[in-house]
Simulated scan of single mutants.
Amino acid sequence: MAVTCTTLEEVRNNIDRLDQQIVTLLAERGRYVSQAAHFKKDADGVKAPQRVEQVIAKVRNLAQVAGANPQVTEQVYRAMIAAFIQQELAEHAALTTQQAT
């Protein structure tokens, strides 16, 4: 829950604190994405558009419950998922190459 700040510096300090937590969570999420590459058979499995839409629907609902803007949440998640898909595609390709040798 956000506290009421009395200065811009307080606002920025709280945003910096949250950014640290968000980046830590992104790193953890990224480690799970890396693990997922081991379970997927091909690039289509990595892209998994149906799963992407499930995640988007889920986070939009979570945003509403939390009092966040669902549109902003969706945009952030779509960008994050697209970046993680690129990471996972590269890791999947490397795994496929290793298995072929």
Rank of each mutant, 00 (worst) to 15 (best):
V72S: 09
G67T: 01
L8W: 10
P70C: 12
G30Q: 09
T101K: 14
A43R: 00
A57M: 08
A63F: 08
R51N: 15
Q71G: 03
P49T: 00
T7E: 07
V23Y: 11
A93F: 00
A43Y: 00
D42H: 06
S34L: 13
A36L: 11
K47C: 11
Q87V: 12
V3D: 15
N69G: 03
Q20M: 04
E9S: 10
E28M: 11
K41T: 05
A37Q: 00
E10L: 05
G45W: 03
E9W: 02
A66G: 01
T101W: 06
D16C: 01
E28V: 11
H38M: 03
P70F: 12
D16V: 00
V3K: 15
L25V: 04
T4W: 08
V72Q: 10
Y32L: 14
K41H: 06
H92E: 01
K40M: 12
A100C: 01
A68T: 00
D42S: 09
K41N: 05
N69D: 15
V46L: 04
Q87Y: 14
Q99Y: 00
T7I: 05
I85R: 09
H38C: 01
R31L: 10
A79R: 12
V52I: 05
Q35C: 06
L8I: 06
T96F: 02
L95K: 13
L62D: 15
Q35E: 14
E74A: 15
A36K: 05
N13L: 09
A57L: 06
Q99K: 07
Q75M: 08
N61R: 14
D19K: 11
A57G: 11
V33Y: 05
L8R: 09
K47E: 15
V46S: 04
T101Y: 08
D44S: 05
R29M: 07
A93M: 00
R12C: 08
H38R: 07
K40V: 13
I85L: 08
L62V: 10
T4H: 10
T73M: 13
R12G: 06
Q54L: 13
A57P: 01
A94I: 03
A27V: 06
E9L: 03
R31K: 15
S34E: 14
V46T: 03
F84K: 12
A79N: 11
K58M: 15
A90E: 14
A57D: 13
R51W: 14
A68E: 04
P70Q: 13
A48I: 00
I56S: 02
I85F: 05
V52Y: 02
H38F: 06
D44V: 01
V23H: 08
T24A: 10
A37N: 01
T101V: 10
V33A: 13
M80T: 13
I15V: 12
E28G: 10
F39T: 05
N69C: 07
R29N: 09
A66D: 03
T101E: 11
A93E: 06
A90T: 10
V55Q: 07
I15W: 06
M1V: 10
Q64D: 13
E74Y: 06
Q98V: 09
L8S: 07
Y32H: 13
R60W: 02
A27F: 04
K41W: 05
D44C: 02
V46Q: 03
I22C: 04
R60A: 13
T101A: 12
M1H: 12
Q98Y: 09
A94W: 03
A57E: 14
T96G: 01
I81W: 08
K40G: 03
L18D: 15
A36N: 05
K40R: 08
